[in-house]
């Protein structure tokens, strides 16, 4: 069954290098079943898995020189 035509699709921005960008607020369910939430207008989700504030991006994906 189709969604209601009034439902705007949720835009997710992906980047090869950098976090996944979503419109906030979001809830994220982690592997252990716990749920964390962010009420920012835009949320940056870590994809490199190096973040010390996982699941949120903390810019740890950056190249180091």
């Amino acid at each position: 069954m189709p969604n209601s035509p009034s439902d705007a699709p949720r835009r997710v921005t992906v980047q090869r290098k950098g976090p996944l960008l979503l419109e906030g607020p979001v809830e994220v369910e982690l592997e252990d079943g716990s749920v964390v939430s962010s009420d920012r207008f835009r949320v940056a989700l870590c994809t490199c898995r190096r973040s010390r504030r996982y699941p949120w991006c903390d810019t740890s994906h950056r190249d180091r020189a």
């Binding site: 921005t13 950098g18 976090p19 960008l21 920012r40 835009r42 949320v43 940056a44 504030r53 949120w56 991006c57 903390d58 810019t59």
Partner: peptide, 14 residues
Amino acid sequence: HVEADAVHEQVVRH
């Protein structure tokens, strides 16, 4: 600011 500015950076750049 660690979390907020990781987002702001993306928004400002793009």
